[in-house]
Design a protein around this nucleic acid. Structure first.
Length: 859
RNA sequence: GCGGGCGUGGUGAAAUUGGUAAACACAGCGGACUUAAAAUCCGCCGGCCGUUAAGGCCUUGCCGGUUCAAGUCCGGCCGUCCGCACCA
């Protein structure tokens, strides 16, 4: 009679053994010897207070890789920390009257406890929280280096301002034009803010995406689109007659279609263009037009439906090539943030320009003739033509194809000294100022005499003051009685100055934490250079753009400021984006969401346990608080153990796809844990010393074990954990069957089980330790080296070959693995089952693919 | 609108150089053990035809193509999900 495995006893036991023996500590380079390094990292969590299943999946995947690499002999760095600044702490402070720090550190303590229960192979000695002053102090140092290097600057920019909460809102926090918390109408405000000059690296960030061959194609594409490079022409149109004040130079525009210049019918300025602003000063109608434009939000839906709006300035500019003028309009669809904030309109070949021209009765002249159209009959109705074609109606460009015409037009404009060919990027500089308390203080002061003065290194970190309150809206730093006021850092200056009260965007905190982990407790940057880049980064696809792009920027900046020796500037050599955890949703008859643990099955129907009301099943969706379809990992660990939770989230779906959490699936995983334990428990104690035997059955079992090992290894290498899991299932079944053979297979079973225990370790480390110990192995399986496959056992002596007749499978034959083509053909042709299908037909061709298939083609 | 992914049994999926489609698991069904239940173990489990059977035919969203051979490659549709979006 076999015993049962008890995870509630085994898991805490093994966790304490691992901690006591300190087996997951990363070795500094001086102690690593010959071992190559492997830096495995999962995106660090925001300490919201509760770990969720998404964390379990994320960290289980990282742990598979980390434990596997360790077994493979790598010096592994696998750290954990906390992305601890941010708004939720301030919201909690407002709601409960606690200090954001108190709330955050309590959450960290709680979540650390939860993560420790998962049995992850983490090096906790490098734990960090971004809200620790020793972390953000270093960040302030980096900020000042960037400032010195010209990678940080100030400019005035528009922000979403919530007049009730007196705070700036991110675009995602503006819902239907209203603040997400206060519900107040959001205003656009101009504020002077700090920016990182990410656009300096636009070209490098774009072209070096190609070197990231261990990143998902999808993420590289998203970044490519986000950076949005386009080549074109920047040129000016000179005014016809007197230019408005300060605009003698003319109007500068950017276009990717200089080939259509002869089709130009108007110039359009952005409502925020400097010339627009100047004209608006003494034109109330234009002021009214501008505020109308401002009202039309920039949300996705609004843009789709937005009507084209125009305002005629009555100014005229001259066409560069022709003796005619173009009217200058102001149009709501021209963005100040891209190009020069002004365009020339060619309605025939741009849909927006066409909509605009039709509305305001401007001319429409086609200049690109699609293939097969006649220039006498071709006309544009309400559909602009943007495809390829031959240029016409265009003087010196006539008859050129589109691409050649673009080059010719640029050349001519450059000759005339009206402009030059340029490259534009969609990417904007990164605004990092946040008018909030719970973030990294920006280490500068504003002096009336000296301007912006960096806080001297010796005065870093600029610490957040603790004595703040959140009873009144706005940034507590801004109204702090003492913190804000300091003497000018310049010794030659006696002025009293004000500190910058803005703090940094929390994306800054997460843009270099991996380098801080790598630098170790003493912040040794040469150790950081040893570990960087991260060999395998694992996290959610939601960070495909911002976090990953900002981190790439930061590493380039730190490299160029001499802060980190990372020649390529790429922080993450390998990236994996995992799918989400989903769960069925449930609704009561009155439309309330019901949580899974509030349900009961009564008489075959689903009801709410508390009320007995009928419940309907809804869609399977991402686990979320609002739909109440979450499952608490701690409850699962208490019920089934951490190994079951880990096994389940890795088992069914490919890691990049969503996985549905089901109670039945978790129970299935729990049954498997017992099944595994049972085959270890059933091994006789003397099996290790049993005679090896040379039976065919023993050889078969050994082949199964070594083939399974090789296939698991390959699956882990390729991030196909679900395939590794399937192989383990098959292997376990084979080992179970072998029990029936008794002593005969004892030795082969012992070998297989030893190998299996090691293969199980990355997935279910606690169970693996217990199994390892049960079969009399010494030491910890967590530190055991990965077994070597006996390649001789990977090939079979004889194999089964399917036989097709005209491409349909009809029979199969057993042949020696090294049989020659003629032998195989002869064997196939003489196979009785095959002959049935050949009767009365003439064989035209026989295709033999050794080791694969035989196909007989008959007439 | 632009860019990209995905579509295989009741369900999650596998088939990773074009070579036996559905491995493995979940759910379901049947059986063994048991006074009974739980647990465990064994078997069946794409569709149609075939009384059981032997066997046959069909089947990877749809239509067509390339090939001895297509889930896989090519062309065209349909559906669905994601990202960006008045970016000149």
């Amino acid at each position: 009679m076999t015993s049962r495995y008890n995870p509630q006893e085994a898991e805490p036991h093994w966790q304490s053994v691992w901690t006591e023996q300190d087996i997951f500590r990363a070795l500094p380079p001086s102690e690593a010897g010959e071992a190559p390094k492997a830096y495995i990292l999962e995106m660090f969590p925001y300490p919201s207070g509760k770990a969720h299943m998404g964390h379990v999946r994320n960290y289980s995947m990282g742990d598979v890789v980390a434990r596997y690499k360790k077994a493979k002999g790598f010096n592994v760095l696998h750290p954990m920390g906390w992305d601890a600044f941010g708004m939720p702490a301030e919201n909690a402070a407002m709601e409960r009257g606690t200090h954001p720090g108190t709330w955050t550190y309590a959450n960290i303590d709680h979540m650390r406890g939860q993560l420790k229960k998962l049995g992850l192979s983490l090096d906790w000695s490098r734990e960090l929280a971004t809200c620790n002053a020793d972390y953000y102090g270093l960040q302030q140092r980096i900020f000042l280096k960037f400032l010195e290097k010209g990678l940080v600057y100030r400019k005035s920019a528009k922000v979403n301002w919530d007049p009730v909460d007196m705070t700036v809102l991110a675009n995602e926090q503006v819902i239907d034009g209203k603040g997400w918390r206060s519900g107040a109408e959001v205003e656009q405000r101009e504020l002077t803010q700090w920016f990182f000059k990410i656009t300096d690296y636009a070209e490098s960030l774009l072209t070096e995406l190609k070197t990231l061959d261990r990143w998902p194609e999808k993420v590289r594409l998203m970044q490519e689109n986000w950076i949005g490079r386009s080549e074109g022409l920047q040129m000016r149109f000179e005014f016809d007659g007197a230019a408005p004040n300060d605009h003698d130079y003319g109007i500068e525009i950017f276009t990717t279609r200089p080939d259509t210049l002869f089709g130009a019918s108007f110039i359009a300025l952005s409502p925020d263009h400097p010339l627009t602003l100047q004209l608006a000063q003494d034109n109330p109608d234009l002021q009214a037009f501008r505020s109308e434009c401002a009202k039309l939000g920039t949300s996705e839906e609004a843009i789709e439906k937005a009507e084209k709006l125009g305002f005629d300035t009555e100014l005229k500019v001259m066409h560069p090539f022709e003796d005619r003028t173009l009217p200058v309009w102001i149009a709501n669809f021209v963005l100040m943030g891209y190009g020069t904030g002004a365009i020339f309109g060619c309605p025939a070949h741009d849909q927006r320009d066409l909509d605009f021209a039709r509305k305001y009765h401007l001319s429409v002249t086609p200049v690109v003739l699609p293939e097969g159209e006649s220039k006498h009959h071709y006309a544009i109705e309400n559909q602009a033509y943007t495809g390829p074609g031959k240029i016409y109606n265009s003087d010196f460009l006539d008859n050129l194809p589109k691409d050649a015409a673009i080059l010719a037009a640029i050349a001519r404009v450059e000759e005339m000294d009206l402009g030059r060919g340029t490259t534009e990027y969609r990417l904007r500089d990164w605004g990092v100022s946040r008018q909030r308390y719970w973030g990294c203080p920006i280490p500068v002061v504003r002096c009336k005499s000296c301007g912006i003065v960096p806080v001297p290194e010796s005065d870093l970190p600029v610490r957040l003051p603790d004595d703040v309150s959140f009873d009144t809206p706005g940034n507590p730093l801004d109204r702090h009685p003492t913190w804000k006021h300091v003497k000018c850092p310049d010794p030659a200056c006696d002025e009293m100055c004000e500190r910058e009260t803005d703090t940094l965007d929390t994306f800054v905190d997460s843009s270099w934490y991996f380098a801080r982990f790598a630098a170790g407790p003493d912040n040794d940057m040469s150790e950081a250079a040893y570990w960087m880049p991260v060999d395998q980064y694992v996290g959610g696809i939601e960070h495909a753009i911002l976090h990953l792009l900002y981190s790439r920027f930061f590493m380039r900046g730190m490299r160029d400021c001499g802060l980190l020796d990372l020649p390529g500037g790429e922080p993450f050599a390998g990236l994996f984006t995992q799918g989400m955890i989903t769960h069925e949703t449930y609704k009561s008859s009155d439309g309330r969401w019901i949580a899974p643990d509030e349900l009961e099955e009564r008489d075959g129907a689903l009801v709410e346990a508390a009320t007995g009301d009928a419940v309907t099943r809804g869609a399977i969706e991402k686990m979320s608080k609002s739909k109440r379809n979450t499952v608490d990992p701690t409850a699962i660990i208490e019920q089934f153990g951490a190994d079951v939770a880990r096994w389940f989230v890795l088992s069914d779906s490919p890691p990049e796809r969503d996985v549905e959490w089901t109670q039945a699936g978790a129970e299935g995983a729990a049954r498997f844990v017992q099944r595994v334990w049972a085959i270890f428990d059933a091994l006789p104690d003397d099996a290790k010393d049993a005679s090896r035997g040379d039976s065919e059955a023993a050889a078969d079992l050994r082949r199964t074990s070594h083939k399974s090992l090789a296939s698991i290894e390959k699956a882990i290498d390729e991030f196909r954990f679900n395939s590794a899991v399937a192989t383990i299932y098959e292997w376990v079944s084979a080992l179970k069957k072998a029990e029936a053979a008794g002593d005969n297979l004892a030795h082969a079973r012992h070998e297989g089980l030893s190998m299996l225990a090691i293969c199980l370790t990355p997935f279910m480390p606690h169970l693996a330790e217990s199994c390892w110990q049960r079969i009399g192995q010494t030491g910890l399986v967590s530190t055991a080296p990965w077994p070597k496959t006996d390649t001789a056992l990977l090939v079979d002596d004889t194999i089964t070959l399917p036989i097709q007749v005209n491409g349909k499978r009809r029979s199969e034959i057993r042949v020696a693995a090294d049989a020659t083509k003629p032998d195989v053909e002869a064997l196939a042709m003489s196979d009785p089952a095959t002959q049935n299908f050949l009767e009365g037909k003439s064989v035209k061709k026989v295709i033999v693919v050794p080791g694969r298939i035989v196909n007989i083609v008959v007439a």
